[in-house]
């Protein structure tokens, strides 16, 4: 059996009940998914469905109650430098300057490097996010957008194999968010890291992601579907909305969040074993003749449907 780059199997998170005889609260249950190497995956769901728990578990900062996580055939246990994290609140160390914050990460990653190498490497990434002018300022002297750029530079500079972004643009205004999204795409297309990102913004997810995981509402949440985004890369904020498929995908996602995320919750998934999200391509679904074509096109996919979720387009990574 082939393994994806990152495999999460049967993940469950329960919190003990608050009362004396209260039942434990199950946030999510039996979640399985895989991330392919070099893939950009966004996860969308309402608050309380456990997105952040999944992310923190992947970062090694939290634990599932049950379930396993494997990355490159090694179990994920505790935090590690091969997994970089960008937090929503930036998590910069306020007593260090922007440069020192990035250096902090780079120094931790490459302990044998000389000070000059560390500084040069850090500066390279700060330049990529357009902060070369303000590297000697402390975070308190930077705007929210600039702080998040420093945080992104720090995460990318350590070249983690898996990059975890927890709503990185959640606290930013729309204009700043757009600019940093473009920068994120730019850095990502250079380094081709695997990215797993939480977002609440449907447009942002379409712009960035190869696949979008849709979570049903908690408690007992699950990842119901994995929507394939087949819009051609490189994508640009301005031109992507003109693509004929954009609104098909967008409507599908919004419909899921508004209507189906709560409907699916009561729907008990049948069967046991690992429940991987159903792959969905909203564009093909909307034109019936294509849909039948997909179903019969690849028997290989069908036979593995309940085990491993392949993305059809792997061409970018050869």
């Amino acid at each position: 059996m082939s393994h994806a780059f990152v495999e999460v199997q049967n993940a469950t998170k329960r919190f003990p009940g608050t009362g004396k005889h209260a039942l434990p609260l199950t946030v999510f249950e039996n979640i399985s998914f895989g991330l392919n190497k070099g893939e950009f995956v966004c996860i969308i769901g309402h608050s309380g469905c456990g997105k952040s728990t999944i992310m923190n578990a992947l970062a090694g900062l939290d634990q599932f109650s049950e379930g396993s996580m494997v990355m490159e055939n090694k179990e994920i246990k505790g935090p590690g430098l091969e997994r970089g994290v960008v937090f929503q609140n930036y998590s910069l160390l306020p007593w260090l300057t922007a440069l020192e914050n990035v250096r902090f990460g780079v120094r931790a990653r490459w302990k044998a490097w000389s000070d000059r190498e560390v500084t040069e490497h850090s500066m390279k990434y700060l330049k990529m996010v357009g902060l070369q002018e303000v590297v000697n300022r402390k975070p308190s002297q930077l705007s929210g957008g600039m702080r998040q750029r420093v945080s992104i530079a720090r995460a990318f500079a350590t070249k983690p194999k898996l990059l975890l972004l927890d709503e990185p643009f959640g606290a930013l205004d729309a204009l700043t968010r757009g600019v940093i999204q473009d920068e994120l795409i730019k850095i990502w297309s250079q380094d081709q890291q695997t990215v797993f990102m939480i977002t609440h913004d449907v447009d942002e997810a379409i712009l960035l992601a190869d696949r979008i995981f849709l979570m049903t509402n908690g408690p007992h949440a699950r990842i119901a579907e994995a929507v394939e985004i087949d819009l051609p890369r490189p994508r640009q904020r301005a031109s992507i909305i003109k693509h004929p498929h954009f609104y098909t995908i967008r409507n599908y996602l919004v419909d899921f969040l508004v209507n189906r995320s709560s409907e699916l919750r009561s729907e008990k998934p049948s069967g046991h074993g690992m429940l991987y999200p159903t792959p969905v391509d909203p564009v093909r679904q909307s034109s019936p003749e294509c849909a039948t074509e997909t179903a019969s096109a690849s028997p290989d996919t069908e036979s593995h449907q309940n085990l491993v979720n392949f993305t059809p387009k792997e061409t970018r990574h050869g």
């Binding site: 900062l61 935090p79 430098l81 997994r83 994290v85 937090f87 998590s91 931790a108 350590t158």
Partner: peptide, 12 residues
């Protein structure tokens, strides 16, 4: 806790 998490994710 965020700052401690930064240290943890950097394997300090």
């Amino acid at each position: 806790n965020d700052w401690v998490n930064v240290a943890r994710t950097h394997e300090l």
